[in-house]
């Protein structure tokens, strides 16, 4: 009794502090929680209870709130970064899996994986403003910096759909390898990267011509090609590197994003899917679903430096810079 009062007090004091250190928020798909990793100490400092089957997770552009796909509750949860409290639930369409936030900080493009739909959510008015029919099992989402193009990848249709963000219409489809999982634009919006989990490659497209510029392949000694399954990836701001999570290969590939040469691999936890990168691009935090942990890779030293235990089946991760 006494002890709990003291710790509650200590918490209150902590929360009252204005400055928040850098954090990584990790969604734990089979625990219905978010683990918050404090970046300076590399420890889990808090675990937040959230809705059912949390997967996609990201911060608003001002980092004041976090958005979370609570897939089996069919909602997007909005979490206050300072208080860690769930502020409200937003409409999302059925079974939201992943999403992307438009540069306007207001519209979220959501993959409704069981309904072959991309929903567009207005977080201010809290309504779905458009629903766009896409391929079977939509997943990966990306929006370019200009805010003109939204991408949806469809896992079973094996396509990246290019959506005009003004008309909400598909204006192009790019066929890729089997089971495309994730998409990202380069910081200059000139290229689009798409990973294909079963296909085993990372596709690169020219965003003007839609031409495929490259398909990056991964060959790892002593790892069977079946197990090389690219899922999440991160491009650096200067477009020099792309880091690719290779699923059951248990590795992160380091790729030259200009020459498309694979430079090396980092061994991480089991079945690595997604990742977050620090804003200074010196650290990478990978979600290892089967081992239930996050590997922290020091990108300057070029090696993993710590494994942090989180909840069951960590799925997504989002980085929040220091504040205050």
């Amino acid at each position: 009794m006494i002890r709990s009062t003291v710790s509650a007090l200590a918490l209150t004091t902590l929360m009252a502090m204005p400055a928040l250190a850098q954090e990584v928020w990790v969604s734990n798909e089979r625990d219905n929680t978010i683990s918050i990793i404090d970046v300076p100490t590399m420890e889990v400092v808090e675990t937040i209870k959230v809705g059912a089957r949390p997967r996609g997770i990201m911060f608003s552009h001002d980092h004041k709130v976090a958005y979370l796909c609570a897939s089996d509750d069919s909602t997007i949860q909005v979490i206050d970064v300072a208080t860690r409290e769930i502020l409200h639930n937003l409409p999302s369409g059925e079974n939201p899996e992943t999403f992307a936030l438009h540069p306007d900080n207001r519209h979220i493009y959501i993959s409704n994986e069981d309904d072959n739909i991309t929903s567009v959510l207005d977080v201010v008015d809290r309504v779905i403003v458009a629903q766009i029919p896409v391929g079977v099992e939509p997943e990966g989402k990306a929006i370019n910096r200009a805010g003109t193009i939204a991408i949806t990848t469809s896992e079973t249709t094996n396509m990246a759909h290019w959506i005009n963000t003004e008309t909400f219409e598909i204006f192009h489809n790019s066929l890729v390898g089997s089971r495309p999982r994730h998409a990202e634009f380069t910081s200059d919006d000139a290229r689009l990267f798409v990973s294909a989990e079963i296909g085993g490659g990372l596709h690169v497209f020219d965003t003007e011509t839609f031409e495929e510029l490259a398909e990056i392949r991964f060959e790892i000694p002593d790892v069977h090609p079946h197990d090389v399954q690219p899922v999440g990836f991160k491009l650096t701001e200067d477009m020099s590197r792309v880091y690719v999570a290779l699923g059951p290969a248990n590795r992160i590939a380091v790729v030259d994003a200009q020459t498309y040469e694979v430079l090396g691999y980092h061994l991480v936890g089991r079945r690595v899917w997604h990742m977050a990168m620090s804003d200074d691009e010196t650290k990478l935090f990978t979600t290892n679903g089967v081992s239930g942990d996050v590997t922290i890779i020091d990108l300057v030293r070029g090696e993993p430096i710590k494994t942090v235990k989180v909840g069951r089946f960590p799925w997504g991760a989002a980085y929040r810079p220091a504040e205050g």
Binding site: P133, G135, V136, S154, T156, T157, N158, M159, I170, N173
Partner: peptide
């Protein structure tokens, strides 16, 4: 049904 969705785009 899975084919038809993809086929719609193709």
């Amino acid at each position: 049904a899975d084919n038809a969705t993809t086929g719609g785009f193709m």
